[in-house]
């Protein structure tokens, strides 16, 4: 008989962190497929390349920190960070961009804070924001989506590979790229109504060309996550409601200057942010009430920054700002414990 002393409970749900991360990665597949179909192989190449870089960076830092390397890499968190960052950056993003973003995300945003579970900010978004403010040009130009008027083909695998690994002159890439719908809207809204109405990129079936399908794909992935109970509905619903509500109010007041709520929901990184980024458990609030407040504030901030901020998309900024608030939200949204008349709040008596 074993002398192993184990206290209760003796049984565990056969569901590990590794599986959790794996399911989140699975859930990004629809979005990845749509991105690849519409914008060429760039995103897929970036995802794979970023994952390799992330594992390497994680392994090196873990070694430096004297932590068990393979044990920690197996949890899959580094790969998930890489996948999310690669999905957020343009398919034409050059290799060094990916490396800088991933290394910063893994080394500085995650490991220097103590590794998995101890990082106050979402590492993928820290990497993204670093790239966005350092290299605004590379980060905001995308190849036109397949469905855009006059575009009959997307870059082939070889073309995408060449664009990413630098054997194509940057000027040529810049020549074929164009602004995203959000960017275009931001440029023309409120000052050039005719251009706003005629911009081809804004003439999609539901929202901006191409992006509508990307967002729908991420929405499907997100629903899978909720169905698998990887995440709860609170954060995504709160984020989307926040965006929808604010966009709705301002669009009703002034349709020419403010885009419709549907456009906001299905443009840029809204769905990716709502289901995959904001729900990162490490940096989000954990009580259900807290999640609702956290999500709603992200939604509002996304809209505020998109409408009046300096950058066309705002998911990363909104998430990072709310990451900062998550502990405070947590302390004031504790659930009422059994046998207590009132819920606790604050951190200690």
């Amino acid at each position: 008989m074993s002398v192993l002393h184990v206290t209760s409970p003796h049984v565990h749900r056969p569901f590990t962190m590794n599986a959790l991360m794996r399911h989140v990665i699975y859930a990004t597949i629809p979005g990845l497929i749509v991105l690849t179909v519409l914008f060429g192989w760039g995103t897929l190449i970036n995802v794979i390349f970023a994952s390799i870089v992330a594992i390497a960076a994680e392994a090196i830092v873990l070694k430096l920190r004297n932590r068990p390397t393979s044990f920690s890499i197996k949890d899959g968190s580094a790969i998930l960070t890489a996948v999310l960052l690669a999905l957020a950056i343009p398919p034409t993003a050059p290799w060094w961009l990916t490396i800088i973003g991933i290394v910063f995300a893994i080394v500085i945003a995650k490991q220097l804070y103590g590794g998995l579970g101890s990082n106050p900010f979402n590492p993928a978004m820290i990497g993204y924001v670093l790239l966005l403010i350092s290299f605004p040009l590379e980060m905001t130009t995308w190849v036109p989506a397949y469905t855009t008027e006059g575009i009959t083909s997307v870059p082939t695998f070889a073309q995408s590979f060449a664009m990413i690994f630098g054997s194509v002159d940057r000027d040529i890439i810049d020549g074929i790229t164009m602004a995203t719908p959000l960017d275009t809207f931001k440029t023309y809204a409120g000052n050039d109504l005719t251009k706003l109405q005629s911009a081809s990129v804004l003439q999609g079936n539901i929202a901006g060309v191409g992006w509508e399908w990307v967002n729908v794909a991420f929405l499907i992935g997100g629903i899978y996550l909720i169905a698998r109970k990887i995440i709860t509905w609170h954060i995504p619903v709160a984020v989307l409601s926040g965006v929808f509500l604010f966009a709705g109010i301002f669009h009703t007041l002034d349709p020419d200057s403010y885009a419709s709520p549907i456009f906001h929901l299905l443009s840029g990184g809204t769905m990716l942010g709502a289901f995959f980024i904001a729900t990162d458990p490490v940096t989000a609030a954990t009580s259900n009430k807290g999640k609702l407040i956290y999500g709603a504030l992200i939604g509002v901030l996304i809209y505020v920054i998109r409408a009046w901020g300096g950058y066309p998309d705002a998911v990363a900024f909104a998430v990072l700002l709310l990451n900062l608030c998550a502990p405070t939200i947590e302390y004031y949204t504790q659930p009422r414990a059994y046998g207590h008349k009132k819920a606790n709040s604050g951190i200690a008596k």
Binding site: I108, I133, S134, F135, P136
Partner: peptide, 15 residues
Amino acid sequence: YKGFLFAVLPPGAFV
């Protein structure tokens, strides 16, 4: 050189 804006901005100074 493309310029690494992050290093020029105050956050880069912090890091």
